[in-house]
């Protein structure tokens, strides 16, 4: 901070410089994308799994926006994933609307709307109360689906959904190649959108709310409005992730609303590191790849492996895997200096 005290003129100028500097694209940020593309060429027979990982990365990214940046603790994020998943599912099964990309937009709008309405009411609360209320939201949506299983297909789901070829050209192959590239492209677009948000003044305000909500009130920041806004955006992104989930699986059941789904995405995010954008990438990828690896190694006892990994992560990397790297980086820099 010493540097910014001497350079630059007005406080406003200094703040702008700070934001621009943080927003600058760093070389290391290309790494996850290069890996994702490399995976496509190295494991051509594993793209079905790859697409699932990308969907979970997107879902975790949407949670990072509210949990990591705004500090909203929720156990009902699957509600928006589910709304998105069912928007494209129901549109395809009941209305014969099978164009995939417009489906994503529809899912974003539907999930965003649900996020806006529930957020408007629920974000007056914090902590445990909010935790229970978000959980209840997801369960209510699930039960509504079960009540009208004539429409939703209930727990047996909506089978045999078919979607039009992507852009009218690319059809879906058994190996999931189209799906993988489709999911990767959508993820890239969403990611750069999220990145813009968190490095904007709006993003800074969210961090402020997370760190000290009273102070934000005191300086006149419209806290509730900001929270509802980010909650709506995160809901819309989760909706897109859900929509991709339905499209890549060509199937959806009410289990997308499960508590498991909300909890798992939170575990992934915390594992990777909250409030640091790439935590979602690292967490979801590490969790799912290990889960896949362990479950092949031992279909019966693999959950032990996952459990052990989580215990170790909590003990040794309280700020996630990326937090651990950061600490190592700091340590090395410290040694260099002394």
């Amino acid at each position: 901070m010493a540097a910014s005290d001497t350079i630059g003129g007005t406080p406003r100028q200094r703040a702008t410089d700070y934001l621009l500097r943080r927003h600058r694209f760093r070389m290391a940020e290309a790494l996850p994308w290069l890996i994702a593309i490399a995976v496509f060429f190295i494991f051509p027979t594993r793209m079905t799994f790859g697409s699932q990982v990308l969907v979970m990365v997107m879902f975790a990214l949407s949670l990072d926006l509210i949990l990591g940046y705004a500090g909203i603790v929720t156990l009902g994020h699957a509600a928006f994933f589910g709304v998105g998943a069912y928007t494209v599912g129901l549109a395809a099964a009941r209305l014969d609307w099978t164009e995939p990309i417009s489906g994503l937009f529809a899912a974003a709008i539907a999930a965003g709307l649900v996020g806006f309405v529930t957020g408007w009411f629920l974000l007056r609360y914090r902590g445990l109360t909010l935790l229970m209320l978000t959980l209840a939201t997801a369960i209510l949506l699930q039960e509504t689906g079960n009540l009208r299983s004539d429409i939703s297909g209930g727990y047996d789901g909506l089978p045999g959904l078919t979607f039009k070829p992507l852009l009218g050209v690319f059809d879906y192959d058994l190996y999931g190649h189209t799906n993988y590239l489709y999911a990767l492209t959508v993820l890239a677009i969403i990611f750069f959108f999220v990145r813009r948000i968190v490095y904007s003044p709006f993003g800074q305000a969210l961090t402020g709310i997370r760190e000290n909500v009273r102070r934000m009130h005191a300086i006149g920041s419209p806290v509730h409005r900001r929270l509802v806004t980010v909650y709506t955006i995160a809901a819309a992104i989760a909706g897109v992730a859900g929509a991709l989930f339905t499209q890549t699986n060509a199937y959806v059941t009410l289990t997308v609303f499960d508590f498991d789904n909300s909890a798992k995405v939170m575990v992934m995010l915390i594992l990777g590191g909250t409030g640091r954008l790439y935590g979602a990438f690292v967490g979801a990828a590490v969790y799912m790849v290990l889960e896949d690896y362990f479950s092949k190694l031992s279909p019966t006892f693999w959950q032990f492996g996952i459990g052990l990994m989580l215990v170790l992560a909590v003990l040794f990397t309280p700020r996630g895997i990326l937090g651990l790297f950061e600490r190592i980086g700091d340590y090395l820099a410290e040694r260099k200096r002394s």
């Binding site: 027979t45 594993r46 079905t48 799994f49 699932q52 727990y155 789901g157 058994l174 190996y175 999931g176 989930f245 699986n249 199937y251 959806v252 059941t253 289990t255 997308v256 499960d258 498991d260 479950s295």
Partner: peptide, 17 residues
């Protein structure tokens, strides 16, 4: 779990991989 998604992923890979 009975979600369909995991079973579909592992079974598809049993075929493709």
């Amino acid at each position: 779990p009975p979600t369909g998604a995991q079973a579909k992923t592992v079974a598809t890979e049993l075929i493709t991989n």
